[in-house]
């Protein structure tokens, strides 16, 4: 029986879709059977990031209103035989997607797959509720900025009311030099405020943008910072204990001293 994990954040643009695509890919790289579900009706992106846009015939709404069978709507990834995508609808009526419909789809997928990754739309309205409905676990994505952390806090509060495990946190798009200058929140600070377990941290990497544009998730690349981070997160999801990546580049004595003094102030 598989596990359904919803990727959510509250705020838009923090990297939910990118995280979903890359975790799906990373899990697939580890020989797991994975199904990605895009629940952002009207603003579907996951198919673009995965490079599967041109293969869409049916979507999630078609499944729900019975226009096709669930199997017909699933798109097989071009790189893996055991990675599938259930795309969101682009033109259909949003209100056709209901929590019951979503629960039914997830329940139907669970016996077939090891992991079902649900990409949640931004916001806390019906779209969010639908995405969470079928999930067993939740991952909250935030960036090291105050508005994003605030919304993550809000969403964690809402998730606590759901019948799922306590959510885990991914801090995305960390720019180390900005954190060091005090212009970005530190990971420890974010974890302390949100008081949930940290699942992983991902550096702000230009490769991620490049990869999204090519429809090829960055997790495929062998050794960029972001791809290693996503693969580490996937390993943690599988239960391995992997130490957090260190962002610190090799530093001279002088800058280390400087840091020491700026801290003791």
């Amino acid at each position: 029986m598989g596990e359904a994990i919803v990727i959510t954040s509250g705020k838009g643009g923090v990297g939910k879709t990118t995280t979903s695509a890359n975790l799906g890919t990373a899990l697939a790289l580890m020989e797991k059977k994975v199904c990605l579900i895009d629940t952002d009706i009207g603003l579907r992106n996951l198919d673009v990031v995965m490079g599967l846009e041109n293969r869409i015939i049916y979507d999630i709404i078609d499944v729900i209103i019975g226009r096709c069978a669930l199997k017909q709507a699933l798109i097989k990834d071009k790189r893996f035989d055991h990675l599938y995508l259930l795309p969101a609808a682009q033109t259909s009526d949003k209100s056709d997607l209901t929590t019951e419909g979503m629960e039914k789809i997830v329940a139907e997928l669970k016996p077939e797959f090891d992991y079902i990754i649900i990409d949640c739309p931004a916001g806390i309205e019906q779209g969010y509720k639908n995405a969470v409905a079928g999930a067993d676990k939740a991952i909250v994505v935030t960036t090291p900025e105050k508005p994003s952390v605030r919304d993550a806090d809000r969403i964690i509060g809402l998730l606590e009311q759901e019948d799922i495990e306590p959510p885990k946190l991914i801090v995305n798009r960390i720019r180390n030099h900005m954190v060091e200058d005090g212009d970005m929140l530190e990971v420890d600070e974010i974890v302390q405020v949100l008081s949930i377990d940290l699942l992983g941290i991902v550096a702000d990497d230009e490769q991620v943008i490049k990869a999204s544009n090519h429809g090829e998730p960055v997790a495929f690349q062998p050794n960029t910072k972001a791809s290693i981070a996503y693969r580490n997160i996937a390993r943690r999801i599988l239960g391995e204990s992997v130490p957090l990546m260190s962002f610190e580049d090799q530093k001279g004595m002088f800058s280390r001293l400087k840091k020491l003094f700026s801290k003791s102030k």
């Binding site: 605030r150 919304d151 806090d153 809000r154 964690i156 509060g157 809402l158 405020v193 949100l194 008081s195």
Partner: peptide, 25 residues
């Protein structure tokens, strides 16, 4: 508990909260 952003905790009498009140809470 943790009172998170958007949450409101109301009590009558005195409140002893074992936990944080986050920004927005």
């Amino acid at each position: 508990r943790v009172v998170r952003s958007g949450q409101v905790l109301e009590v009558k009498g005195d409140l002893l909260l074992l936990g944080d009140v986050n920004p927005g809470g």
